[in-house]
Design a protein around this nucleic acid. Structure first.
Lengths: 333, 333
DNA sequence: TTGTAGGCGTTATCAG
DNA sequence: CTGATAACGCCTACAA
C-alpha cells in the first residue's frame, strides 16, 4: 500500500528537478536524451506514472466523457455501448456511464458531470424532454451530443440514422413483396417523434395510395409492450379488417409482437401477417424470429460523434445511412 | 461559456473568506446560520458548485469506480450494468466503463484506472487470466473485486452466484422430470472452470449413477458458438446414442443450441431433447424459447459488491443464492 | 536545455 | 466560528 510516487520522488532519484521529469513525460518537449533516459530509469524503478487527476486540474481537461443512458431494457444499447467505449478509449477518452431514471434525472446527471469537469456529454437514450435539457445545458459547461435520436435542443447536435431513407427502403421492400395493408406500432407518443420513423412510414404509404394506416400504440419500447399492443389490436379487430404487415418502431417491439402473433393467435409469419422492426438487435437473426429489420450504422455514428467531440468535425446534426436487412418475416416468395 | 465560479468568487460576493464558503458546503461544519445563508445566496446567484476534481486531488478520493467488461456479446451484461450503475450512483459513486479487448487489455486498463485514482475496480467479465491480474494488482492501488465469476487471485474477493446449489437445484428438477442421459455444453476450458458449473453438473450425475456425461465444447459464450457446438454433436452422434437433456453453461449458448435443434434438425423441445441454460437473460422467457434456466441474484450481488467497496462488509469471497426458473424447455408433463 | 515561480480549486490544520 | 497557511501533483510561463 505504498503511496504513489510523484514527479518529485523521481526527480530526487534521477538527480534532476521535477520539471525535468515532467518534460520527460511530455511528448515533444525539449530535453536531452540523456536526461530523459535518467528520468525514465528512475521512473521505471519507482513505477511512476503521472497523476491524471492533478493534470486535469491544471489543464482543465479530464478526457472523460459522460454517457447518459436511460433505457437498459433495450438490447440495442449493448452493441452501441461496446463500440462507443472502444472508440473513446482508442482516443484516450474515458467513458463515464450514467444511468438515468426517476431517482437520478438528467439535470442531476448533468450537474454532476459538470462538477467532474467532463469534456463532453453523450445523451444516449430515448426518454428525455428537450425543455429539461435546455435549462440544464447552461449549467454543465461541457458540450452535449445526442446519439441515435433527434435533438430539438438548439446548439446540441444529433447523430442518428437517417430515418427517412431507412423507412423508405424498408417500405419499398414491403410494397414490392405485395403488402398493401400496413400498420405501424409506435412507442410512447412524446418520444416517438424523436425517432422520425412513424412520420416517414405514413408519408410513404399515403404517397402510394394507402390513406389509412392503423396505429398500434405501445407503452414503452420493450418486448412486453410490443406483445401487449398487438394483443390489444388483434382482439379489437375482426380478421377481415386486419393489416397484412406490421412495422414496429424497433426490434424489441417487433419481437414481442411476433411472439404473440404466433403463440397466442396461431398466426403464421409472414403468410398471415408480416413483421418488420428496426435496429437489427442480437436476436433478430435467430431462426426463431428471422426478422426483417434495418440496421443503424453504429460504427459510423460512434466515430462521427467522437470526431465532433474532439473538434475534428463540425458540431452539427447529421443523419447517417444504415442498411436494410431482409429476412424471412416479410418474404412472401 | 463563462468559467466556473470558485469558492473565492462566492466568498467575494458574500463578503466572507473562501474557507467559510467551503464550510457552508461541508455537512456538519461549524458555521453560523447567518454566514451559511449569506454564502448560499451568493452561491445560488453565481451557480457555484464545488469542483470535484480539486476535491479529489486534496482528499485522495475520487468516488469513481472502474468497471472492466470484456464480453459485450452477452445480453446478461446489460441488466447487471443497469443495476450496478444504479446502485453505485445511489452511493454517490460514478461508474467508469472500461471495454477490455485485445487492443486494450486488463493491465492497460488497471494502470489507467490507477492514474485516474479510482476508488475501486470491478472485474465484470469472463476472459481474464489470473496471472495477468496478479501482477497488475500491485500497480493499481485500488482494491479489486470480481463480479459474477470465481477469483483465484489472492486478495481479490469474488462475488458470485453459488453454482453448486444452483446446479444441484437445476439437476434435481431435470431428474425429477425423468431425464437420465444428460449432456453439458461448456464454454472455453480455461474460462469455464471459473464459473464452477461444469464440475457441479458432473458431480450431481455421477452421484446419481450416471457415469458418462457427454460434453459439448463451445468456442465462446455466444449464441453462434452454442449453435455450432450442438450442430457438431448431432452430426457426430447417432440418434440412439443421443442425450435427452442438454444443460448449457449459459443462456446465450442454450438459445443458440435451441434454435439449431428445432430449425436445422427438426427436433422437438423438450419431447426429443430438453434444454436448460443459466442467467435468465431477456429472451429466455419469450414464447419462442421458453427456456428453463437459473437466475443469478443480481441485486444481491451488486449490493454486496458495493458494501465491500465502501467497507461496510468484510472483503471476502461470497457465493449468493439465485433462483431456479422452470419453463417449458424441460417440462415433460 | 534546465531550474524557478505561480497557479489550478479544494481540504487539513492551526491561530485568533 | 472565522481567517490564514500549507499541501495535493501537475502545468504554463518565464528566467537562467
Amino acid at each position: 500500500m505504498a503511496k504513489r510516487p510523484t514527479s518529485q520522488n523521481v526527480a530526487d532519484m534521477a538527480g534532476v528537478s521535477k520539471w525535468t521529469v515532467i518534460r520527460a513525460f511530455t511528448p515533444g518537449a525539449s530535453i536531452t536524451e540523456e536526461s530523459r533516459a535518467k528520468v525514465m530509469a528512475a521512473a521505471g524503478q519507482l513505477n511512476y506514472r503521472p497523476n491524471l487527476l492533478a493534470r486535469s486540474l491544471a489543464t482543465n481537461l479530464t478526457h472523460q466523457v459522460a454517457i447518459l443512458v436511460d433505457d437498459f431494457e433495450n438490447p440495442h444499447k449493448l452493441p452501441v455501448l461496446e463500440r462507443l467505449t472502444l472508440e473513446l478509449q482508442a482516443e484516450g477518452l474515458v467513458p463515464m456511464l450514467v444511468n438515468i431514471n426517476e431517482r437520478f434525472g438528467h439535470v442531476h446527471a448533468l450537474l454532476n458531470a459538470g462538477q467532474r469537469q467532463v469534456d463532453a456529454v453523450i445523451l444516449f437514450g430515448t426518454a428525455f424532454r428537450n425543455e429539461t435539457l435546455q435549462d440544464a445545458r447552461l449549467e454543465g459547461a461541457a458540450p452535449m451530443f445526442v446519439l441515435a435520436r433527434d435533438s430539438q435542443i438548439p446548439g446540441v447536435p444529433a447523430i442518428s440514422c437517417d430515418a427517412t431513407i431507412a423507412i423508405e427502403e424498408l417500405c419499398a421492400h414491403l410494397r414490392e413483396q405485395g403488402y398493401r395493408r400496413p400498420g405501424f406500432m409506435a412507442g410512447p407518443q412524446t418520444l416517438s417523434t424523436a425517432l422520425g420513423r412513424r412520420r416517414s412510414f405514413k408519408t410513404f404509404w399515403v404517397r402510394h395510395g394507402v390513406e389509412h394506416v392503423p396505429e398500434l400504440p405501445a407503452k414503452s419500447y420493450s418486448m412486453t409492450s410490443g406483445a401487449e399492443a398487438v394483443r390489444h389490436y388483434l382482439q379489437e379487430t375482426s380478421a377481415g379488417d386486419r393489416i397484412d404487415v406490421l412495422m414496429c418502431e424497433n426490434d424489441a417491439l417487433a419481437l414481442g409482437a411476433l411472439d404473440v402473433l404466433r403463440s397466442e393467435f396461431g398466426l403464421r409469419v409472414p403468410q398471415d401477417i408480416a413483421v418488420a422492426g428496426f435496429d437489427n438487435i442480437m436476436f433478430a437473426d435467430a431462426p426463431a424470429y428471422d426478422l426483417t429489420t434495418y440496421e443503424q450504422p453504429i460504427e459510423d455514428m460512434v466515430k462521427t460523434t467522437i470526431d465532433m467531440i474532439l473538434g475534428r468535425r463540425e458540431r452539427q446534426t447529421v443523419q447517417l445511412r444504415g442498411r436494410l436487412v431482409v429476412r424471412g418475416s416479410t418474404k412472401r416468395t
